[in-house]
């Protein structure tokens, strides 16, 4: 299913369950360092901010990639990495304005959110629904609730 992740910052408790689930389903290991999502926690600044790939339609990581290893796949509405082309230069890591591109400390490869192929597991385990998956074409509800907060 086409869609994207949406985070409600008011609901995020900073428990980092998303980090562990992510690393577990992608690497079989419980290791936040290998997760494609991570939470910046500033408790007394009262900010819990999950950082993750926005699946940009014009992704800066792709635009700056010297080997065209990254592209936006319109059909899946997702930014994908072609590891056959990737030379591991990490320019994408520096290019991402959200800090969503990481380097896996075990494989040395750059990693990013792949929405678990359309069924993001972080969403499933986030008990407070701080992270939700918004199917494209059905974002109305989110926008409405965002507008109501203005």
């Amino acid at each position: 299913m086409k869609g994207y992740l949406h985070v409600d910052l008011d609901k995020c408790t900073g428990c980092r369950t998303c980090e562990i689930v992510c690393s577990l389903v992608h690497t079989g290991e419980n290791n936040p360092m290998r997760a494609r999502i991570y939470v910046i926690r500033n408790k007394f600044g009262v900010e819990m901010r999950p950082v993750y790939c926005r699946q940009c339609a014009r992704p800066p990581c792709a635009e700056n990639c010297p080997t065209d290893a990254i592209h936006y796949d319109e059909e899946r509405a997702m930014v994908l990495i072609d590891y056959d082309k990737c030379i591991g230069c990490k320019i994408c890591v520096q290019s991402c304005p959200f800090g969503a591109m990481k380097v896996d400390p075990v494989t040395g490869q750059v990693i990013k959110c792949d929405l678990c192929g359309g069924d993001p597991q972080c969403v499933k385990y986030c008990i407070d629904h701080a992270i939700t998956f918004i199917p494209i074409g059905k974002q109305e509800k989110v926008i409405r609730s965002a507008v109501s907060k203005l």
């Binding site: 008011d10 408790t13 900073g14 428990c15 980092r16 408790k43 009262v46």
Partner: peptide, 13 residues
């Protein structure tokens, strides 16, 4: 209360 927070991996927060 200004924000609900949780320990590591906790659903109860």
């Amino acid at each position: 209360t200004v924000h609900i927070t949780a320990c590591f991996s906790c659903p109860l927060h």
